[in-house]
Write a protein that binds this DNA or RNA. Structure first.
Lengths: 229, 229, 229, 229
DNA sequence: CATGAATGAGCGTTCATTCAT
DNA sequence: AATGAATGAACGCTCATTCAT
């Protein structure tokens, strides 16, 4: 896991002294990583700090060198998990070059990568489950992650509408509809799907179907005429 | 405390017993209702039986007259919450009369009603959060609710494809994509949205947008030509 | 509390039911008694709640049915220990009949009885040891016990001076000098003297000597001539 | 923190080593001084070694270079605090010259000085509070300090009686009565009085009143006739 | 000599569970 | 049937103690 860091060419025997210092710096994220895994699996309250410590390979007391309380650990887990999610999306939006469909698809695809390949998806599930118990954290998360993410999609949709690539629509609502399958699939994989590992590897198929439906809808071209209820 | 009930003059103990009997039958669902509310709000582990009892207006010991343990209560909550959800959908499917689009729309609309107007949505959130801690319950839930619900949508989609109303598609995956916005919105309302009650009343707008996108997709008719990545 | 409802006349065999109730009422003082004993012996911090519970013959959890925390238990110990100490002294003072010397002696004697025959002396030691850790409690104790006790002695001294039985003196300071041997002896018995039980039974001798010195001083009548430094 | 001492011009690294050596000898008593202060304020059990170290300006590990354990530190605190208290008194007694009243007064005055101007009074309070937890230390303290101190007063009283300056009395008991106001005042100042700094400066007045009462008693000369109870 | 990261036994506190009433 | 007092195992957190640096 952390073995590759020393491999910078010539250096030879320093690792001895570094061990302490490296640990000291590396510890917090080792700990939050362990905590995230267990929080996601069992929930905040059902996770014992002994287990977090054991999973991180330290003693229980060590946790308290880095975090004041279980709650502080939770907050750190969320905070750390939030950091890098949306930056690529914002960068992508900033470069106006992309064609609307490709822009949206690229953004969603990138999110999918992050949500399924990093622990970020776990943060999402965790935050959803514990929002009621940690209102302030939830508030923070909502502003820093959710609102921001929705804003990205909103912009992408608006541009597409303006460019004529997308149909006119209730953009505000559409944002939720567009994102939902992505988030839901991730949540799914962190709850039920951990048991029936079947669909875990079908990411490709899921994405294709997702984009296809998202862009063109269910209806065959002949049947695309309806009124609202 | 409530000892005055026996001291009501001549008519002796029938009304009292009536009350008792009525209570006796009603109790379990009063208790599971209270439990569900708290489980959804705080999670299983963070919910104290004292609070459940208090919310149901009984003493803590009374819970154990109806449920063997906290876990048994949890299972009862799930079981009770599962019962009636899908039956209308299955009935709807059984009557082959409906036109595919209306069929799907009707089914989803009915689900939405139930998920947002009854505590069933809470069960869904609860089960998602606790699946890791109650594998057997999760298994059961998956088979009795999720698989069955997916099967309904799957059938509806297949019929639509066969009838030419829906485009050919990867039905297996499409099921998730179709259902996701509905479930996600419900989950949302049980976690973050309890805080920002804004969108709570936008159900109508959400549904319109959802169906519109679901059926016709984002793209304007001119731009419906793309390859997969 | 609500037990009176069934008590309609001739009832006979109720003691069985009373056990619970009697315990419920008796418990708090059983617990504070146990706690006082251990707090005095070992100090607040060094006393484990397990030990308090064991000494009181209950389980550790039971403590929390009656006291919110260890600190609350401490406060209850102090509060309960304070209750009845000074009332007899105040009554004594209120009856103006007594001759000054007898008044003072009677009051001090009564205190001595209470301090050495009840756990009140322990409270004094405890409060002295823990005043630094519980400022508010100390404040309260000082006002409710110490200041009040000093006021009693002060009044007694003043009356004696006015009546000509006592010499003119710095009454304010004299109060401390008068009380000190009493309190000190009690403190002593709760710390060192618990080890060398020798002087424990010399209460009589101690009191005689105390009163004798207090009233007449060390000096023989011939040598009572000195200046202040 | 106090690093400015080394900055005296050109000399390079000698002062540094000097400082080390000087520290090395001074350390133990710096540490016990810090420990005493906290032990007196909070009690033994409630004092954390981190706080002792912090107050002494060293790291926690350093404590263990000088003391094997917290208990060893406690013993050192007591031992160090005991050292020089009684020697002047013994010297005073050894020189038979003084007149009895002046001898006693001189001895008590000297003790007062030491008890109120040095941390020794704190040791007394500490030992009183912790005697139950450290029987051997208490035993040692009793023999080395208390018994010795009482012996001094006893001798002084006996001489006074023999010389006719003091009345015949129960010398054994009188010792306690004589010392009590002194000790009690000191204890007081280390517990309650730390909060109401009022009387802190009244040492002079207290001593005057103390000596006056001690020697001549409360009673006016006319009223010095009474029987024992 | 000095540091401070790491440890783990121990304690205060909670809460699911039991049972006498 | 219903209560609520009592229990005790379990967990969060602390802090004396150790040891690699």
């Amino acid at each position: 896991m952390n073995g590759s860091s020393t491999a910078s060419g010539c250096a030879v025997e320093q690792p001895a002294r570094h061990k302490h210092l490296r640990r000291k710096e590396a510890r917090p994220s080792e700990l939050t990583a362990a905590a995230l895994a267990l929080f996601v699996e069992k929930g905040f309250a059902a996770t014992r700090l002994d287990d977090v410590a054991a999973l991180a390979g330290v003693s229980k007391g060590t946790l308290y060198l880095y975090f004041d309380s279980k709650e502080a650990l939770f907050k750190a887990v969320i905070r750390e998990g939030m950091v890098p999610v949306l930056e690529r999306g914002e960068a992508l939006l900033a470069s106006e070059t992309a064609e609307p469909v490709a822009l949206l698809r690229g953004m969603l695809l990138d999110w999918w990568e992050q949500l399924s390949k990093t622990p970020i998806g776990g943060v999402q599930k965790l935050m959803m489950a514990e929002a009621g118990n940690f209102p302030e954290v939830a508030q923070y998360y909502q502003e820093a992650v959710i609102d921001r993410g929705q804003a990205l999609v909103r912009t992408a949709l608006r541009r597409g509408v303006e460019a004529g690539a997308f149909r006119p629509m209730d953009v505000e609502m559409a944002v939720s509809v567009v994102i939902a399958p992505l988030l839901h699939e991730v949540l799914w994989r962190h709850s039920f799907a951990s048991r029936c590992a079947a669909s875990t590897l079908d990411g490709r198929r899921f994405l294709e179907c997702y984009f296809d439906l998202l862009l063109k809808g269910l209806c065959s071209s002949s049947g695309a005429r309806e009124e609202r209820s």
